[in-house]
Amino acid sequence: MSTTIAPSINEKSKNIFTKATLQPINTAYSIEIDNVTVSFKTPAGVYTAVKDISLSIKKGEIVSIIGHSGCGKSTLMSTISGMVAPSNGSVTANGIVVTKPGPDRGIVFQNYSLLPWLTVYRNIYEAVDAAIKDKSSAEKKELVENNLKMVKLWEHKDKLPGQLSGGMKQRVAIARAFAINPTILLLDEPFGALDALTKSSMHVELLKLWNLDNRQKTIVMVTHDIEEAIFLSDRVVVMNNGPAATIKEIVDVPLPRPRNKKEIVHDESYMAIHDRLLNLLIDKFSINDIH
């Protein structure tokens, strides 16, 4: 990997970013990633996936993470969720240092992670049943039903995951994360396997859910889709290539809400943001192309 030029630039941009986020001290952060490094022990030695990542996300903010495949987006999501412990630094979620997963953080895994022996309905019910302690079983069933209807899978509730298409599995995973009604939603390429139409309606559902809760839910989403990132997010985090990936740049998306998908594409600031993101990503492509 030729990261010889990149790191010096990264260091600068990261420092600028850290200063910037320190300013609004009075705002309660929902997620604080403080100087996080994640290394894995592998047979070939220690592999550092992400390094010195600092990122503070406000309550109710929607943040997208984009970056090359293998740069460590999922790894970062796992540290927020508490599945993977950082080798250095710390993650704080809702004011508490993350040591393990909790029902305050709902996850849509990149590979869906459905249990193959449980029906669609059971997959969601067991998660709801485990995560929510203070509801009756009738209330839990209602939650499952509502969320399955939201992702339009109620008719398929008795199927096993093996009988579903990729997009359907993804929607089950989304329904499962939504059903436990977490304050933080961690979505790892949640709409990647969906067709454009279904994707659009899932965007609407996601924003509906967010609005319903008075925009108090914090959403962190990994995506490869620039348009999706801009349409949904308040900020887009662009990551460098790994190993030891850092944050390359954070792009603000100050477009007013509610956003109209058809209209914002003609908005000048939308186009500027789109351009900036594309440049950041293409920049990387060209570095890779030399090899």
């Binding site: 909790g102 895994f109 992670s113 049943d129």
Partner: peptide
């Protein structure tokens, strides 16, 4: 690991983990 992650992420009790993941798998 995927199945274990589900159990971790949604806070399965030991009993649920055994009956819904360990035994079926």
């Amino acid at each position: 690991q995927d199945h274990k992650n589900v159990s971790k992420a949604f806070g399965f009790s030991n009993w649920k983990y055994i009956t819904k993941i360990v035994i079926p798998y």
